[in-house]
Amino acid sequence: MTITAFVGLRRALPARFRRPRWLIIGCGDVGLRVQRLASSLTKSALRGRVYALTSSPERLPVLRAASITPLLGNLDQSSSLRRLAGLATHVLHLAPPPGQAADGGVLHHDPRTLALARSLRRGRLPQALVYASTSGVYGDCAGAWVAETRPVAPATARAQRRVHAETVLRRDLGRAGVRVSILRVPGIYAPDREGGTPRARLLRGTAVLQANEDVFTNHIHADDLAQACRLALWRGAAQRIYHASDNTELRMGDYFDLAADLYGLPRPPRWSRHQAQEQLPPLLWSFMGESRRLENRRLRQELRLSLRYPTVVQGLCSGGTV
């Protein structure tokens, strides 16, 4: 049979023989939740085969147990990514940028996403790619409501790396015809997620800002984020930004007070902004120094996501007794 005849035969096959091939980059807690959702789909033609890139041999049994085909590779070693070219029809990019440059210096770009984009361009391009970015790309918005059309203003190197990753994907893959969608994600929580509740912080007695200087914070339950990732792969528009955030409107101190009351723990102490900036670790302070409220209309109307946990009260109580 000639190659032309084979290609024509494949196109004529029933949909069940042309199922999508998913590739998850950075398949941790959220990636595994996405896989559980995908495997529960009633339309078998949408299930497809799921691959995941991992740099840890220890993760292989975990991924296989979740019905995922693991691929050993490292985003920091571009030569290990060659097998990704032409592999997947749909790519979910959940891997964070490196925390610092190879020489230990400050890093303002994301070499991992750049290496991934270059590898994908070597073969047949995927139909769609979804990237989980961060809401930190907006910087401090002084508590204003933030739409997806707001210009980015990253105030930290961590957020600048995310802006670079978004730009690379939209430029190098989006302009080449890949349907690239960006999810800008706030704080992820879930009672069944490691470090996914405020309990440990409350037990340490870490302070929050006093009420008149407090900042607005945004949240998404890990299960709702997984659903947003899945829906964006199928319904996300090309070059489109979505806020993967729930309906909660809380200041950070009120969030921790709420959690403390749910857990029966003491509420955290309240510090002035000056005191917090002087005494808290820089990374923690960077989260407390920015205030914004994310609009999620696109998430609800365009991706048609019905939030399972619309508020943090419902989400924090979802694991049973707190």
Rank of each mutant, 00 (worst) to 15 (best):
I3A: 14
L9C: 09
L9P: 05
R11K: 14
R11H: 13
L13V: 10
A15D: 07
R18H: 04
L23C: 06
I25V: 15
C27D: 11
G31Q: 10
R33K: 14
S40W: 04
L41K: 12
L46F: 09
R49E: 15
Y51F: 15
S56T: 09
S56W: 02
P57H: 05
L60Q: 14
P61W: 08
L63T: 03
R64L: 11
A66Y: 09
S67N: 15
G73W: 05
G73K: 04
N74V: 07
S78L: 07
S79Y: 06
S80I: 06
H93V: 04
G105C: 05
H108G: 00
H108S: 08
T113G: 07
A117S: 08
V130P: 08
Y131E: 02
A132R: 02
S135K: 00
G139F: 06
V146D: 03
E148T: 10
T149D: 15
V152N: 01
A155T: 14
R161C: 09
R161H: 03
V163S: 02
A165H: 07
T167P: 01
L169K: 12
R171I: 01
D172I: 01
D172E: 15
L173D: 13
V180C: 12
V180M: 12
P191K: 09
R193L: 03
G195W: 01
G196R: 10
T197V: 08
P198M: 00
L202N: 02
L203F: 00
G205D: 02
A211S: 12
D214C: 00
V215W: 04
N218C: 03
H219R: 15
I220C: 06
I220E: 09
D223Q: 13
L225W: 08
A226Y: 08
L231Q: 15
Q239D: 15
R240A: 15
R240H: 13
H243P: 13
S245I: 03
D246W: 02
D246C: 03
E249T: 10
E249R: 14
L250D: 11
L250N: 09
R251H: 04
G253Y: 00
G253I: 00
L258F: 12
A260H: 09
D261Y: 01
D261H: 08
D261I: 01
R270C: 00
Q275C: 06
Q277R: 14
L280H: 11
L284C: 00
W285C: 01
F287R: 00
E290M: 11
R292E: 11
R292W: 05
R292I: 05
R293T: 07
R298A: 11
L299N: 08
L299F: 04
R300G: 05
L303I: 04
R304E: 15
L307E: 07
Y309N: 04
P310C: 05
T311I: 03
T321G: 09
